[in-house]
Design a protein around this nucleic acid. Structure first.
Lengths: 227, 227
DNA sequence: CGATGTGAACGCGTTCACAGCG
DNA sequence: CGCTGTGAACGCGTTCACATCG
């Protein structure tokens, strides 16, 4: 049913293969380590060091990286800064990503506050809300607009990513509005499964599920890894 | 290196087996569907209906449930309310879980606001912060205390779960304090990998990683499932 | 007949082990 | 010799297929 799925090369010489969800998430964590190591002026790092700092095996690190190219030097390790830049590029963090935020409640404002976001190249161009008391204000430099301005703002800023931080009951409606405005990816904090047209990617972060998973392992001294 | 790990039966007649992380998370979602279905006064639901409402296969649903017992009736489906209660019990949500919150910033307050939490049996007994401006106030009925009161509050309320909602730089210190006060599980929102004594479970929710994963699939039209 | 429960088959990510190279 | 890169082996969660039972 699924065709062999050819996959052409990108800008630099990638290997073709199917990259897994887990690999991408680990890449994101390797990057964090490389960032701090770079400050220590170390020039090279071994797969084993990277592994230990992330709670995985060195073979895992090497496999993950080998999906994208050959970055290491045998007997030496990986050049810290080069590898860091490489991962940056792979993740698409080598340029800025404009983002819209729907819902200016606590979660929404937390996202605006989140300094790590800015550092990683995400910037929230505007927030949107239905609450008249929130509309018109500017929170930490981010203007909060009424919903009807969503399509316009998304178009002018060429926004592809939206954050949904509204109550569960409003989430699907907001999601539809984002979809109509041409969103490509949604980070959803609402306690609901969103239905989207095919092609739009949704990542839901559900605090309830996280808590329940945590409680389960605590209660049963569960042995599966949580992280 | 890891001993075979026997696993004894609990209260009612569970099956012994190794439950997977994914199974628990799905259970949490099945529960949500059962909740809404129960309101529609339907008495039974098939694995197929449960599956479609969650974007998984019916075989998956049956396998998941069969880990914990035999709840369905052949040719009929699963009794909605019974199954709901069963899952409630499996997840440990059949009783209240007192929780402490460290960090009364936006994320912290978002957790206090999060109504779903209350409904699921989590209640935040107190918040803690180092900011004198926050200490002493009460947010939505939750008092905010100075850090030194953490051990006392945790003991009197027999708290096992803590939420870390502080900046990355403070997270490990807070984590240590929680550990010393006898925490069993931590939900961590800080952009850091926490080091904990063995036995303490940590679930980290890192918005940066979520965003970067999302961006990757958007950018490369990634084909792996995000949710 | 309809839907569950489950052993067997499958697919895929992780780990192992070692060849290869600086 | 040290560490990378990688094919092969492994383990495990998912899917298939069907016996089973109301």
């Amino acid at each position: 049913m699924i065709p062999p799925g050819e996959q052409e090369d990108r800008s630099s010489g990638w290997k073709r293969d199917q990259i897994s969800y887990s690999t991408i998430r680990r890449l994101s964590r390797y990057y964090r380590v490389l960032e701090s190591v770079a400050e220590e002026e170390l020039t090279h790092i071994s797969s084993d060091q990277l592994a230990q700092r992330n709670g995985v095996t060195s073979a895992q690190v090497r496999k993950d990286l080998s999906c994208f190219g050959t970055f290491g030097k045998r007997g030496l390790g990986y050049p810290v800064k080069e590898l860091r830049n490489e991962i940056l590029r792979i993740l698409g963090m080598d340029h800025q990503w404009p983002v819209v935020l729907v819902g200016a409640g606590n979660i929404g404002r937390a996202m605006i506050d989140y300094v790590e976001f800015r550092r990683r190249g995400f910037f929230i161009v505007a927030g949107f809300d239905v609450d008249p008391k929130k509309i018109g204000i500017t929170y930490k430099g981010v203007p909060i607009f009424p919903m009807f301005r969503l399509p316009g703002v998304m178009e002018t800023h060429e926004v592809e990513i939206g954050i949904v931080a509204v109550p569960a009951l409003a989430a699907q409606r907001v999601c539809n509005q984002l979809a109509e405005s041409g969103v490509k990816g949604i980070l959803n904090f609402a306690h609901t499964r969103l239905i989207v047209p095919s092609g739009i990617k949704v990542r839901t972060v559900d605090m309830s599920i996280e808590m329940e998973t945590l409680v389960y392992v605590v209660k049963n001294d569960g042995s599966f890894p949580l992280d």
